[in-house]
């Protein structure tokens, strides 16, 4: 192990790690916002409402993220219409392509987490709220969702870790995030073991910190107390 070289290039790896964190943070937040209506629709009793987001979720969960990334980054540019549209300034930037793709991808998974969480809310509680005269919307906002958030939080934290790992794919569309930084450094130094190892350790540290953060959040939201039936 050539530690001196690792230390020498550490700032570049850390720059990459910052970009990794940005990509993950933005996409899991936007993904959550996008997933909320889809998850609620998926848990609905109305068949049509339930079927509507299905195709979207099916596509994004059934195909590799790498293919989705290449479809958005290289695929969209095949069409002149896209290149002349108002969206092009964003779509031409690999940063936004990565964020768009990762958001669309994670939203499909989060929507299913939300569906599962809503369906796990004890029916008695929903019935009780309705019996107290709450409207459907009130029940959703004050009873079902707060309860579902706590039920779904552990699964959401898992999804965030999965997206942290998935963000490594952004290196294939020229972004110099953590994996991209390691690959660029290796192209110069020919030290694959050293730099993939160093990048791996940084991923582990980020994952560890995120998991601890979610544990704190779970404690703050008193998730434990809400899990009992």
């Amino acid at each position: 192990m050539n530690w001196d070289v690792i230390v020498q290039y550490l700032p570049r790896l850390l720059d990459g790690a910052v970009l990794t964190l940005q990509l993950v943070a933005i996409s899991v937040l936007l993904g959550l916002i996008l997933a909320l209506p889809m998850g609620i629709a998926r848990a609905s009793q109305n068949l049509y409402l339930r079927a509507l987001p299905y195709a979207y979720i099916f596509f994004f969960r059934g195909t590799p993220l790498l293919v989705q990334l290449f479809l958005v980054y290289y695929g969209m540019a095949q069409f002149d219409v896209v290149r002349q549209s108002a969206l092009w300034p964003y779509l031409r930037d690999p940063y936004w392509c990565a964020i768009i793709t990762m958001t669309l991808h994670t939203a499909a998974y989060i929507a299913e987490i939300i569906r599962g969480a809503i369906q796990a809310v004890p029916p008695g509680e929903v019935e009780a709220a309705r019996a107290l005269g709450m409207s459907r919307t009130q029940t959703l906002l004050h009873v079902t969702l707060p309860r579902a958030i706590r039920i779904g939080l552990p699964a959401y934290s898992n999804e965030v870790i999965l997206m942290l790992k998935a963000s490594a794919l952004a290196s294939t569309i020229t972004l110099v995030e953590l994996t991209g930084a390691a690959r660029t450094i290796i192209a110069r130094t020919y030290l694959p073991v050293e730099f993939f190892f160093a990048a791996g350790v940084i991923y582990l540290i980020i994952a560890f910190v995120l998991v601890q953060g979610f544990k704190l959040l779970e404690r703050w939201l008193r998730v434990d107390a809400c899990q009992g039936r």
């Binding site: 994996t179 190892f197 582990l204």
Partner: peptide
């Protein structure tokens, strides 16, 4: 824990390029 905390892509690259020695 270790394997689940590191991106799959990194494992692929590490095992392919890192095992030469």
């Amino acid at each position: 824990t270790l394997v689940r905390g590191v991106p799959e892509l990194l494992w692929v690259l590490l095992i392919y390029f890192g095992t030469v020695g």
